[in-house]
Design a protein around this nucleic acid. Structure first.
Lengths: 224, 224, 224, 224
DNA sequence: GATGAATGAGGATTCATTCAT
DNA sequence: CATGAATGAATCCTCATTCAT
């Protein structure tokens, strides 16, 4: 790079003390996600979000024009796009479909449930009515790919004679509901002032046992 | 004018004749529940609640000292105490435990899911962090009795050799999670601007099939 | 009136202490007019307007949804509609057209210049660029009728052989400009921290002398 | 690249070549004058002023310590000091006083009315109450010299038997008012969203005709 | 009791000003 | 010098709550 200018304006060094334009959006998103999930959109105060991100009120509005715009950015940028990876894992999967299902449930928890991004799920359920267009985005980017993947998992089990499923459309919810419940619980009844925690591993194990016994054809039961 | 109410100014619905003050608290609770569920506690405005209940803003505060007190009253009075009845039904149950489980799921939907009271579930998940003491009340009055009943249902199946359950504490969630998901969905993604509805009957049927196949010991499978 | 109710809700007694819904809008308009004229739209603070009207900040927004809406109401309700009356006076006028012009200038000052409403003129000149639609309203309701009347005054003088006017369209400004200047001066350089006052009577007299000598045909000059 | 300026990043107008810091203050003054006139002091944003001057917000404060200081500098540097020149022209004037008046009106328009400096007049009328000390400066530097000159013009006409004037102090406003009105109109009702324009030449001609007929003694009328 | 006008603390948003780079 | 990210005081506006009628 022969450029003599010592300060390249396009790629900022993230280590600079105080002024970190590059890092701010992400920090704000994280702080906002935390507080929106914790208190809900309306009850979360922008000043508190800014404070948690380590900046002042005004700085927040430098990056996001309004609280609502921030909210939308939170949803847009906090959703974890792991479906490409999951699809690959699905394609490459050699084992039984029961193991595939078990892998999916565990991966769901490990890659979403344990991360900050899991709060988005609660946000969607809590604020759906107040942000219909955000829900539409979420449906397109998260729900649809997720259902699509799960459908293929179930179809694989069917095709290989492993699963016995009557209503495949709604059988998808058989996998979805337990995980959504777990994530929602984690962000509501399961936290706060020392409330009713659920042990995720034990929960998933219990669900998987029943679920797979329920899905698999009889000979397969010995396989568990 | 035989109407005994002296204040029926101009724009009163004639169908709600002679509405008197004894009915007010209940009407306010209903209106508040609707709006809290729809928009969340913070975003719901007391003026709108009062208007939906057909009274003025001032009147609301005559019955409930504050918005928060109203919220607590909503939770307190909108929870349906059907556990006494369910316990009786459980005691008197003569059929199989699988049928008992199926009855429970259907009753859950019929007596809670389809009623306005189902909103309380969403409220608990959405507002748990903002109202820890309300959650404590809800835990005591609803969650605990519910889990207790479901535990007895599962234990009955175990005792009678109908069910095969390893972890009974977490097996309860096997019944809870699908129903909570259904109810939460109904009040969030499932409603509003034409969003992803779930057919409850079909949903419950699909869940029940898998669930009971999963819970029951092998010979019981022919019972489905 | 056989009505037994002591408080007729439609027509409020203006004497009631504290709650005077009927009087509020007018009081707010007056206070707002004063402050908008004094400081301009942007520099006037709604809290100060409310305080000057003797109410709190919140009350202002009970009557006018926003500062801008208040501004528009100020213009709409503070313009003095004296053109009907002036037109009548014009129709009934028996004297010379020179006297008619002199009467118009004096009436302008007496009925507009000395009143609070004269501030609207300053507002229009100061804020025209920020409120184009308000200007359009003002043009329609004030400027057009005013010009129309003055044109008829000048045409009367022409028709009666009293005035000698080449360009009647712009001769109107001959009457308009001095009065607008006087009013604008009164609300800006003429007031405040003891600034350059102009004696209205003397100003109008001096303008009228020159103006009428300038407008009248030569023989008329002796008439002054 | 022979350009000596090291900072000509990307979006610089190539026509304004080699803009250097000496030019900055003037460019800022021009930009500020435009925006103050257009929107008023309070509604004009320093960022927009800086942008219009082609510099950053921070740079503006390098030259002017505050928005108010900038405003004062705008007034101080944008007033056109043409009175020395006008006084010379007055001293050297050989023609009739009527022609002298006509020359004054036209010069006013040509040298002030058509220039950016005319906005100062609007600023003074709009912001007088908010900046009393600026008004005092303006009075001393502009209004007083202007009135002084006009007084001498009128006195010349009187002394030469050309004018007939009763109240010379207020006769000055006979010349001032039409020009101030024209300038104020140009910057408010006369511009913006296609509003009521006035043709300056025609306006001045019409005013001059009437004015001079009004000021001149009878024999002078043939001189027009 | 019921009303709804009035209140004012609270929260979102703006923007002049600062200052590290 | 110039920049523009950051600040926070100031301001508009909301809405739960009060209270005179």
């Amino acid at each position: 790079m022969p450029s003599p200018t010592p300060d390249t304006p396009t790629d900022e060094q993230p280590s600079r003390r105080g002024r970190r334009k590059e890092a701010r959006p992400g920090e704000l998103i994280e702080a906002a996600l935390d507080l929106f999930v914790e208190k809900g959109f309306a009850a979360a105060r922008v000043e508190e979000i800014a404070a948690r991100a380590g900046v002042s009120k005004g700085t927040l509005f430098l990056y996001y024009g309004s609280k609502e715009e921030l909210f939308k950015a939170v949803v847009r940028h906090s959703i974890i796009d792991c479906f490409a990876e999951w699809n690959e894992q699905f394609e490459a999967w050699q084992g039984s479909s029961a193991e595939l299902v078990r892998m999916c449930l565990n991966a769901w928890w490990d890659r979403i449930g344990t991360t900050r991004a899991s709060g988005i799920t609660k946000l969607m359920f809590s604020e759906a009515q107040n942000f219909p267009d955000v829900v539409a985005f979420y449906e397109r980017e998260v729900i649809a790919p997720c259902h699509s993947l799960l459908r293929r998992v179930l179809e694989r089990g069917l095709a290989r004679g492993e699963f016995a499923i009557a209503d495949i459309d709604y059988a998808i919810y058989t996998l979805v509901a337990p995980m959504i419940f777990l994530v929602l619980h984690k962000h509501s009844l399961g936290c706060g002032a020392g409330r009713m925690p659920i042990d995720p591993q034990r929960y998933i194990a219990a669900q998987a046992v029943t679920l797979l016994r329920g899905l698999c054809v009889r000979p397969a039961e010995s396989g568990q």
